[in-house]
Design a binder for these strands. Structure first.
Length: 113
DNA sequence: ACGCTGACTCCAC
DNA sequence: GGTGGAGCCAGCG
């Protein structure tokens, strides 16, 4: 059975699949979970996840590659530093070469095909 | 129980 | 080409 009964859990699973040194967008995740129009919920879910889950929310940026949620990461450059630690060049809260680092997550299967 | 907000995105003017 | 508004869904006051 599927474990991701909650919309948020779906997001968590997808975000956790983001490879090292890679970034993705809310829209990409939203589409992966079947909610392309609910990108806001993706970010919202992250807020609940970053709290303590093992979800690399710092790898999730907005459509422009901007660290929109950095402000919620503790109020410091934590998010930017984390990305740079992974080899991602971030300048002024914006991911450089964002398109190249952009990683599109696969569509989340309902539970196993 | 009702309504608002929210780490976004897209469409229209 | 730039700016503004509407849409989506779920948690929270």
């Amino acid at each position: 059975m599927k474990n991701e009964d909650s919309f948020f859990d779906k997001v968590y699973q997808v975000v956790r699949q983001i490879p090292y040194g890679r970034v993705t967008t809310y829209g990409a995740i939203a589409k992966a979970i079947g909610a392309a129009r609910s990108a806001r919920m993706v970010g919202y879910a992250m807020n609940a996840s970053h709290n303590d889950k093992n979800v690399p929310a710092h790898r999730v940026v907005n459509r422009k590659g901007l660290l929109s949620g950095k402000h919620h990461f503790g109020g410091t450059n934590l998010m930017q530093q984390l990305l740079q630690s992974e080899g991602v060049v971030v300048i002024d809260n914006q991911v450089q070469d964002f398109e190249s680092l952009l990683w599109i997550p696969p569509v989340l299967n309902d539970f196993n095909t």
